[in-house]
Design a protein around this nucleic acid. Structure first.
Lengths: 148, 148
DNA sequence: GCCGAGGTTTACGTTAACGTAAAGTGTCTG
DNA sequence: CAGACACTTTACGTTAACGTAAACCTCGGC
């Protein structure tokens, strides 16, 4: 899907643009997760790799999706939230106006979330600075009074 | 409730530095969490309010702790991680050097985490921009072809 | 021809972070 | 003094996000 980058007729073209594939183990090592996790994400509708017989084969698109998913996770999004965006992203070409507007809503929401997180990080940073300063003070005091 | 705003009976200085108290319900509304959550945090060692008989009374210190805890949560820290810092923070005055160094390690760790999150947010922001742009494009196309 | 390394499904187990229900206590209020 | 309402403890229930175990296939190498 979404081969729109294909100048349509592109049958071979020596330049293997997107031909690299990965096994589940490849991706697992690459992102330091277990295969179980990757299969779980598929089960949750976040990935949809092709099959060669029974085994999954992942392409660039899947790798990017996994990357985005893990990034979302690090930012505290639930898999359901991530899927919500990913699905709409894929459904865009034929998306109706209502869906698109819903997507924009979700995006605004995520954006607000990110803003709050930025502020949280700033504040947390100060707290850490404060704690660290106090810790260092106590430490140096300890070391100073060592020779009494 | 909370008739303790009686600065009248303050024996020493009129300046009531830290005398305000809160009920569990007060804090719950203030931070939009349930009392159950607050009790749970106490059970997990993140809060330690005093008791007036059987009921908990929270002071400024507790409110700040709760605030920090919730902030940590928004940043994806587990309660265990938060407690780790909070406990050491409290134990600092009599902390030995080993504990303090451990604390500094933890802080460096958290800091690295925050840095990664900042980068994640920047990247995610771009993704959102991208998705939004594409969505808007499709939308305006839809609206343009409305009058065919 | 077999073996080990990787892949697969199915299904039950686990942990964190609460929710929810039951049953009781304390205090103000009409 | 009877509600009403906010607080309490105890304990079992729930959800998300995987972990883990069993039992199977399949493929390249010796």
């Amino acid at each position: 899907m979404n081969q729109r980058t294909s100048d349509a007729t592109l049958p071979n073209r020596g330049l293997a643009l997107q031909r690299r594939t990965y096994t589940i183990g490849d991706l697992a090592k690459m992102f330091e997760v277990t295969p179980r996790t990757i299969r779980f994400y598929e089960q949750e509708g976040l990935l949809a790799p092709q099959r060669r017989g029974q085994t999954r084969i992942y392409r660039e698109k899947d790798r990017v999706r996994l990357k985005l998913t893990l990034r979302g996770k690090r930012l505290g999004f639930s898999l359901a939230e991530i899927r919500e965006v990913v699905e709409m992203y894929d459904a865009m070409p034929d998306g109706n106006a209502r869906q698109l507007k819903r997507l924009l809503e979700i995006l605004a929401d995520k954006r607000a979330n990110l803003e709050r997180q930025l502020e949280d990080i700033r504040l947390m940073h100060r707290e850490l600075d404060d704690v660290e300063t106090r810790a260092r003070d106590v430490l140096s005091n300890l070391e100073n009074t060592l020779g009494d």
